[in-house]
Simulated scan of single mutants.
Amino acid sequence: MNRFMGLAALLSVVLSANLAHAQTGKPGVEKLYILNCGEGVAGDISRWSPGVNEGQSMDFVDNCYLIKHAQGWFLWDTGIPDAVAAMPNGLPSPDPKGVSWKRPKTLAAQLDQLGVKPSDIKTMAVSHTHPDHIGNVEMFPDAMLYVQKAEYEWPGANNEPRFKPSHPVTKLEGDRDVFGDGSLIILSTPGHTPGHQSLLVKLPKTGAIVLSGDAAHFKSNWDNRRVPSINFSKDETLASMQKISDTLAKDNAQLWINHDRAQRDSLKMSPEFYD
Rank of each mutant, 00 (worst) to 15 (best):
Y152P: 10
I121S: 11
D275I: 00
K97L: 10
P194F: 00
H167C: 02
H21T: 14
A86P: 00
Q148L: 00
T78A: 00
C64D: 01
P271L: 09
L187M: 14
A17R: 09
V61N: 10
E173P: 06
V126W: 01
M5D: 14
F232Y: 14
M58N: 09
V99F: 01
D275P: 11
T129F: 04
G213L: 02
M58V: 13
D175H: 06
V227T: 15
Q197I: 05
K243M: 08
G38R: 10
E236P: 03
I134D: 00
A262E: 11
I185Q: 06
D62Y: 01
S127H: 12
S240D: 06
D175W: 04
I186N: 01
I134Q: 04
W222K: 00
Y33F: 15
V52H: 10
D260G: 06
L107S: 01
G28Y: 00
V13Y: 06
L66T: 05
E153R: 07
K243L: 10
S266C: 10
A249H: 04
K171W: 01
D265E: 15
T123V: 14
R3W: 09
A143M: 07
W101I: 12
I67G: 05
D275L: 04
V61H: 07
D112A: 15
M87S: 08
M5V: 14
Y146K: 03
N258K: 04
S188F: 03
I34A: 06
Q71W: 09
G98S: 07
L19T: 06
L66K: 04
Q148Y: 00
P204G: 11
N18H: 08
T237Q: 03
I134T: 11
T24L: 14
T129P: 01
M1K: 05
G135E: 13
L145E: 08
H192D: 10
W76V: 03
L114R: 02
K234A: 11
A42W: 07
P204S: 15
A157T: 08
N224I: 02
V61R: 02
H259S: 15
D235T: 11
L211W: 12
N136L: 04
S270D: 10
